[in-house]
Design a protein around this nucleic acid. Sequence first.
DNA 1: TATCAAAAAGCAACAAGGTTGCAAAAATGA
DNA 2: TCATTTTTGCAACCTTGTTGCTTTTTGATA
Lengths: 150, 150
Amino acid sequence: MAGKKQIESAVSAQDPLKQKGLSVTDSRRKILQLFMQQKGALSHGDIEKKAGATFDRVTIYRTLQTFLDKGIIHAIPSANNAILYALCHEQCGPDHHDHQHIHFICSRCKHTFCLDHSVTPDLHLPKGYQAQDIDVLVKGVCKRCNTTSK
Amino acid sequence: MAGKKQIESAVSAQDPLKQKGLSVTDSRRKILQLFMQQKGALSHGDIEKKAGATFDRVTIYRTLQTFLDKGIIHAIPSANNAILYALCHEQCGPDHHDHQHIHFICSRCKHTFCLDHSVTPDLHLPKGYQAQDIDVLVKGVCKRCNTTSK
DNA sequence: TATCAAAAAGCAACAAGGTTGCAAAAATGA
DNA sequence: TCATTTTTGCAACCTTGTTGCTTTTTGATA
Ligand SMILES: [Mn+2]
Ligand SMILES: [Mn+2]
Ligand SMILES: [Zn+2]
Ligand SMILES: [Zn+2]
């Protein structure tokens, strides 16, 4: 009995959904899987295309919101009116997003990447301004595009 | 004659619209004025509200695009799907936006400000990544909100 | 395994944001 | 003033995101 319980909780712990206290559904599993297969970030539209007609648009919106709330994914700002999302590799939770990495937007392949091992630099702000959170967006040419086409 | 020409070109030089080679129209004048009166950044929606029913929605979209193209305003990325725009104080032109300042989003008053006298820091990127352009977004409490309510 | 309450998905209808083609109006330069 | 070019307004359309409600699925329990 104690042995069985241990196995169950081990399985639970592996599943990010159960880990975050979410019930496991087809759409959540599928969307999570898309993020895990992906090197870069995904927009709602990307997911809609990749998931095909499997799920309703509304379900995708609600799933993304749930994932954001639970600290499974984080949003990446952009200047082209398409919010991007990517997996949280840091330990995030409800109301507890804490990302210190840089986001890189490739102007060639148009993909957006989390540079997980980068660190957002210290900033010097004018007097009176108090920083809570910093987002650094870098546009340029990504590693793959640089090496692929010389 | 020569005197008159000098005065004309002096007047022209003052008007940012003529300076950038744009014909002067009511909507362009009005929208430019809104930006100049404003401390913070404006979204398309903000302009629509402030300009009232004076102009068609489409005219506002087109005017913003024109101003972007000519280097009169610049776009500020955001994570809430509402692109913001603010005047360029640097010398920008067609295909020539070069901003080195930080954007500050106040979580209290919800306004976004250009910290024109700030400087974007040097970044250390992983090997292979080549930076062309850097956007720094800082969320926090702005000067005014900090001093107003202690 | 069957049952049940709670949670999530699907559906429809809607609202907001943004784009396009075209005709009317305004701006520029002669 | 006139002719040409540019810009505006309008209508129609598309995409993106939201909301309320019903049906289906989930996870827990007996
Ligand atoms: Mn990231
Ligand atoms: Mn700015
Ligand atoms: Zn690339
Ligand atoms: Zn403020």
